[in-house]
């Protein structure tokens, strides 16, 4: 399943989350981290939902993670209505957060929970790219 076949619906970019989306546009995974408790926050916010501190700092994450769970969706909705099947997943980033994503450039039948993956960025219009993942070791 290659990434080129998947829809890339442009996300709504707002000032609060623009640093994250600017990162994706430049091919970098940029995440917010609390300046007080160092918690790595997901989804991106400009305050810390763990300790209530404001502001946060934005840092470049490794882009490495592992599969927490995945499913092959065979009945998409909305922008995915005409996509025969795709892999919806939660990936656990090396920095802690578990993020919703798609796994691409893979054979879905060979995917395994715990398998290492790395970030890829799929262009989604002028202001964002979608954060997706592919297996670290191609099969």
């Amino acid at each position: 399943m290659s990434g080129a076949q998947l829809p890339v619906p442009p996300p709504l970019v707002i000032p609060e989350t623009k640093p994250f989306w600017d990162g994706t546009k430049a091919g970098r995974l940029v995440l917010p981290r609390c300046l007080r408790c160092s918690f790595v926050i997901w989804y991106p916010r400009q305050f810390c939902p763990e300790c209530g501190h404001t502001p946060v700092e934005w840092f470049e994450a490794s882009g490495h993670g592992s599969i927490y769970s995945f499913t092959i969706v065979r009945r998409g909705e909305g922008a995915y209505r005409d996509t025969p099947q795709y892999v919806l997943a939660f990936v656990e980033l090396q920095e802690g957060p578990r993020v919703m994503t798609n796994l691409i450039d893979c054979n879905p039948a060979q995917l395994r929970i715990g398998e290492p993956v790395r970030a890829v960025f799929c262009d989604a219009g002028d202001s964002a790219a979608l954060l997706r993942f592919r297996p670290l070791i191609p099969r």
Binding site: L12, V13, I14, P44, T71, V73, M100
Partner: peptide
């Protein structure tokens, strides 16, 4: 609605209700 805070981080990936429960079942 698209201004729901989590929306931009989930909907673009084809999140569906059954997809989410499937992720739970798989785990």
């Amino acid at each position: 609605p698209s201004d729901t805070p989590e929306y931009a981080f989930e909907a673009p990936y084809g999140e569906t209700n059954i997809g989410i429960y499937a992720l739970a079942a798989q785990r």
